[in-house]
Amino acid sequence: MTIEDIKKHGDIVYRKTPLLTDTVMHYCPGCSHGTVHKLIAEVIEEMGIQQDTIAISPVGCSVFAYNYLNVDWEQAAHGRAPALATATKRLNPEKYVFTYQGDGDLASIGTAEIIHACSRGENIVVIFINNGIYGMTGGQMAPTTLLGMKTATTPYGRDAKLNGFPLVIAPMIAQLDGTAYITRQAVHTAPAARKAKAAIRKAFEYSQKGIGLSFVEIVATCNSGWKMSPVAANKWMVENMFPKYPLGDIKDVLKKE
């Protein structure tokens, strides 16, 4: 059986979801954003909720997420996505409302908005991309930047005395009564991406149960900002980011002990 025969007679077992538009993504080669966008799109497609989904994009590289996912989008000011999502969901409780935010957006300028959305128990989904750097502005230090990590504003490596410590968001908001599901995932390998997709699906499902906010952190790479090849960046992430930001569920209020 030739390759052409397989294509002709075989089943399509994987293809680009129609929930993604045909626009070529502006992201750098190997950027995790594209993979996460795709997983969200696949979840929306599989759940059949395209017309019931309202997405909110942040400021940062993923501001243009609205060019790639075929759902209605609101573009928020830097850090304010959870405030938009709060009103969008409260005024349209039947909709699935999610924000897509980077670490600069969510963990720095938008800490008040995310913490209070969590605390109020808004029935929304938050996708949090943690790559430890500001991508769009040219690779400056983010609140989640690791100690010793070199960025444009920590050229000699992040120093706790000078720059403070990395901010670990997920366990912090897990303490808030308004959160239902908090998990940390990655998309660098196929098994990891499949798990991340399952987590995103769970978050979307939870958001309609009226039990509070669901939060999916994706530990991600910014290979341009980190100045590495995509494959090397994935390896660096496993070796350096995962010890500080370990993968796995942090909170699940519906999980039976």
């Binding site: 309202i54 928020a76 000011a77 304010r80 405030a83 938009l84 709060t86 009103a87 969008t88 209070h116």
Partner: peptide, 19 residues
């Protein structure tokens, strides 16, 4: 809804107005 700040309340208005 009582928001956590005016920054947030105006952005809630933005989110609601979007819909």
């Amino acid at each position: 809804l009582q928001a956590e700040s005016e920054t947030s309340s105006i952005n809630m208005v933005y989110g609601g107005a979007c819909t």
